[in-house]
Amino acid sequence: MEKDTQGTLWEVFVQANPGIPHKHVGSLHASDEEMALQNARDVYTRRKEGISIWVVEAKNIKASSPEDIGSFFEPANDKVYRHPTFYKVPDGVKHL
């Protein structure tokens, strides 16, 4: 593969409205934080998509790998009691 000469890779998270979480919208190239922030503004919020932006250098994200699926996520399959709907609320319980 050819060497990437466009700076480091950053992941962009945009908050669409107050009070809701920042959501991952994509990535871009930049050589420093301020450039990443400005590029994110220009590339991802031109159509009023957001009110706040986070940029994180992609190398700082530790991601799970596909091999982890078995040990990470499958054990949760048979543990329905972890859902609140599993429990019946006894009659007469207040303030729930």
């Binding site: 190239h29 400005q38 590339v43």
Partner: peptide, 11 residues
């Protein structure tokens, strides 16, 4: 010079 800057200048 790069895609991001192309968009910034045209903005």
């Amino acid at each position: 010079p790069v895609l991001e800057e192309d968009i910034a200048l045209t903005n």
